[in-house]
């Protein structure tokens, strides 16, 4: 899907302008510029240590940037806690290691935030949670503890948990990297069906098949910089930079 870059900021949900980040002396993100429109699906790939995870973690302020601006859904991300909380309500995140809460059941994992952050009544929160657990195809696990589920099931619960907050933007930080091949398919299928619903998605992943199927844009990062950003078709068949060509020649096609 190629579209002309619209200049109107009206439907931009994420804007990153001239953003830099350092870990102490180490310059981990260099002059990042990124615009994401509503409903866009972006896959970010690149070698380890290129700053892909760090960049998306800056979007929900799990990491702080030292220079530049990040504006999410019209709210600028600064040290102001109110802004940070407002952004985090609208941005959901799925982690590589699931990060489910082991002392709560699957259902409690999903209803905790809606009840206490969005002040949704318990019955309604549970109904929403069951609806999303059905969407990810594991409603029967609702009363189990995360320790009793397989990796693929845990990751699907994590996806459902984020969706229960009804975010506008979903961030995925290598969601399938800790899973075996059968479970990868389960999770990717869920993400594909999610993508078809129109939610804005930013996904850091090595699953190139997923990228080809779902992405509107593929971004390649290396050493803290965005090297290339293109539609999947262009990206895979016609890479512009040498670094991209080198990377693509080395990864296995999933």
């Amino acid at each position: 899907m190629s579209e002309t870059q619209s200049n109107s900021t009206a439907d931009l949900c994420i804007e990153i302008r001239n953003m830099d980040k350092w870990y102490g002396d180490f310059h981990v993100l260099k002059n990042i510029n990124l615009e994401v429109r509503k409903g866009e699906k972006i896959v970010i790939c690149g070698p380890s240590g290129s700053g892909k995870s760090t960049m998306i973690r800056c979007i929900n302020r799990l990491e702080e940037h030292q220079k530049g601006d990040i504006i999410v859904d019209g709210t600028e991300l600064t040290n102001d806690l109110k802004n940070i909380d407002a952004v985090r309500r609208e941005v959901g995140m799925v982690f590589q290691h699931f990060n489910l809460f082991p002392h709560l059941t699957v259902l409690e994992n999903c209803t905790l935030a809606p009840i206490w952050v969005r002040k949704v009544p318990k019955a309604e929160a549970e109904a929403t949670a069951m609806e999303f657990l059905e969407r990810v195809k594991i409603p029967e696990q609702a009363n189990k503890y995360p320790g009793q589920l397989s990796g693929g099931q845990q990751q699907r619960v994590a996806i459902a948990r984020s969706l229960c907050m009804r975010p506008n933007i979903m961030l995925f930080d290598e969601p399938t990297s800790a899973l075996d091949p059968e479970m990868i398919k389960e999770v990717l299928d869920t993400m594909v069906s999610l993508a078809e619903e129109g939610i804005t998605m930013l996904c850091v992943t090595h699953e190139m098949g997923f990228a080809k199927k779902v992405a509107d844009r593929v971004i390649f990062m290396d050493e803290g910089e965005i090297i290339e950003s293109n539609s999947p078709h262009e990206f895979f068949d016609n890479p512009q930079h040498d670094r991209t060509k080198l990377f693509l020649s080395q990864i296995l096609d999933h």
Binding site: N60, L62, D85, R88, F95, L100, L112, A113, W116, V117
Partner: peptide, 8 residues
């Protein structure tokens, strides 16, 4: 991080 990302 998971707690923060959910808005708690």
């Amino acid at each position: 991080e998971a707690a923060e990302s959910l808005g708690l």
